[in-house]
């Protein structure tokens, strides 16, 4: 190690937040889940809301998300996280309830729960990880899988006739009057991480001000499912995923900023 002499508390620029537990995350090397977890935990720490934060974990790769957040948590059945969050938030209006869901959980099996929680304008934060594939079960097609993309259940590539179209659920949710803040971000570069953190912070601030549903999509990688090393997967994501799922705010302060 170089510059051992500057390793002093007063020189600290960045360290892992204590709102993450000490558990080693089970995610594959380079997976965006870990980065997104870190961002959420940092926002909770910075806002001083650890005692009021309640995490609702999904089913999928992030089924064990509750092992990593040092906040009280619940594991939901597949797709049902927004229903749990609805009840918890209504029963505890001053808490900060957030769901953390993947594309299969949120945009396939949990579509009804997602749409209706957003349509009621539940005062919750939804963090949506979109990597276009089912990671946990071994890389099958997700609702957000791109056309032509090979997965375990689309071995010849996603075919519209057979499988329909990729679901842009975030754009769909932005149309609902209950959503107050809808954005799509990513975590593949330092700049992207900073933007995502800002968006997550905005979401929790909106919740504090009881503005309704805040929805943050994070377009992410799936190195194992896409069968690429992490840096390569990030490049592929920029080239392919961002074309279908463009990065940026979609709805801010209750107003659509994108068509």
């Amino acid at each position: 190690m170089f510059n051992q002499d500057i390793v002093k508390p007063e020189n600290l620029v960045y360290k892992r937040t204590d709102v993450l537990t000490d558990n080693v995350m089970h995610y594959c090397p380079g997976c965006g889940h870990g980065t997104t977890h870190r961002i959420i935990a940092e926002v909770i720490e910075e806002m001083g809301i650890q005692d009021k934060a309640i995490c609702v974990a999904p089913v999928g790769c992030s089924v064990l998300a509750y092992n990593y957040f040092e906040v009280d948590s619940l594991g939901a059945a597949h797709g049902r996280a927004p229903a749990l969050a609805t009840a918890i938030q209504r029963l505890n209006p001053d808490h900060h309830v957030f769901t953390y869901q993947g594309d299969g959980d949120l945009a396939a099996i949990g579509t009804a729960e997602t749409i209706h929680a957003c349509n009621r304008g539940e005062n919750i934060v939804i963090i949506f990880i979109n990597n276009g594939i089912y990671g946990m079960t071994g890389g099958q097609m997700a609702p957000t899988t791109l056309i032509g993309m090979k997965t375990a259940t689309t071995p010849y590539g996603r075919n519209v006739e057979l499988n329909g179209y990729p679901l842009q659920i975030t754009e769909l949710l932005a149309q609902l009057p209950g959503t107050y803040f809808v954005t799509r971000q990513s975590v593949h570069t330092a700049a992207a991480v900073r933007k995502t953190k800002k968006a997550v912070r905005q979401a929790f601030e909106n919740q504090k001000n009881k503005k309704g549903t805040s929805f943050v999509e994070v377009v992410s990688n799936c190195n194992s499912g896409w069968k690429m090393p992490a840096p390569k997967a990030n490049e592929w994501m920029v080239e392919n995923m961002f074309a279908k799922y463009p990065i940026g705010d979609i709805k801010v302060d209750g107003e659509l900023v994108q068509k």
Binding site: R80, A83, L84
Partner: peptide, 17 residues
């Protein structure tokens, strides 16, 4: 709720807290 599926999961959420 929007369905019985949702209402029982709302119950799960409320019971969990």
């Amino acid at each position: 709720a929007e369905s019985e599926t949702s209402s029982i999961n709302m119950v799960y959420g409320g019971a969990g807290v």
